[in-house]
Amino acid sequence: MRYREFWQLVDEVFGRAYGRTLASDQVLDALGSRTAAQAVEDGVEPRVVWHALCDAMDVPEPERWGTDAHRQAPPAR
Rank of each mutant, 00 (worst) to 15 (best):
M1Q: 02
M1T: 00
R2M: 04
R2S: 06
R2P: 00
R2W: 01
R2A: 00
Y3E: 15
Y3W: 13
R4M: 05
E5N: 07
W7K: 05
D11H: 13
D11W: 09
D11Y: 11
E12R: 13
E12M: 07
R16P: 01
A17M: 14
Y18N: 15
Y18C: 13
R20I: 02
T21Y: 09
T21H: 09
L22G: 01
A23E: 08
S24P: 03
D25G: 04
D25A: 08
Q26G: 04
V27F: 02
D29A: 13
A30G: 15
A30S: 11
A30R: 10
L31E: 08
L31R: 06
L31H: 06
L31C: 07
G32C: 06
S33P: 01
S33V: 01
R34P: 03
R34G: 08
T35F: 01
A37G: 05
A39W: 04
A39T: 04
V40N: 13
G43N: 05
G43F: 00
G43Y: 02
V44D: 11
V44R: 10
P46R: 10
P46Y: 02
P46F: 03
P46I: 02
R47A: 12
V48E: 13
V49N: 04
V49E: 00
V49I: 07
W50M: 02
H51A: 13
H51T: 13
C54W: 01
D55P: 00
D55I: 06
M57Y: 10
M57R: 14
M57T: 15
D58Q: 11
V59P: 05
P60L: 04
P62R: 05
E63L: 15
R64A: 06
R64I: 02
W65K: 07
G66L: 07
G66Q: 01
G66N: 06
T67L: 13
T67Y: 15
D68N: 09
D68Y: 00
A69R: 11
A69D: 09
A73K: 09
P74L: 11
P75K: 09
A76I: 08
A76V: 11
